[in-house]
């Protein structure tokens, strides 16, 4: 007996929910961004699983996963630059103390 599609999908759903919880609760910008990366990874896992289990068209899911990786790498690089900028200007990277854009 091998892996089934629904097992991988459940795993990805659990990972996505954990990442969502972290992104909503954690205070450090760095950890919030890491949790968003966790959610991206869950999505990639789904794409790879669909590509593996339903051979609708060879490897289309993996190609999509490559593009998701590119976009999330860009997002993370920019977020880290913004975190450094915030630390330089406000001396903190806690999300609930960065409130200068509150209406």
């Amino acid at each position: 007996m091998g892996i089934t599609l629904s097992q991988v999908l459940i795993l990805a759903a659990a990972m996505f929910s954990i990442g969502l919880y972290g992104a909503l609760t954690r205070k450090s910008v760095v950890i919030v961004v890491m949790c968003v990366e966790l959610m991206f990874n869950a999505v990639n896992l789904n794409l790879v699983a669909f590509s593996f289990f339903t051979g609708l068209s060879a490897l289309r899911g993996q190609v999509f996963a490559v593009f998701v990786m590119v976009v999330s790498a860009c997002e993370l690089g920019l977020c880290m630059a913004i975190a450094i900028l915030l630390y330089r200007n406000r001396a903190t990277i806690e999300v609930d103390r960065i409130n200068m854009m509150k209406w």
Binding site: A13, A14, F16, S17, L24
Partner: peptide
């Protein structure tokens, strides 16, 4: 919220019979 969201995803995954 996170538990409900994960439960919803799991419910949807389990309620579809995948190939």
């Amino acid at each position: 919220f996170a538990v409900l969201f994960g439960g919803m995803l799991g419910f949807v995954v389990l309620s579809i019979d995948w190939p």
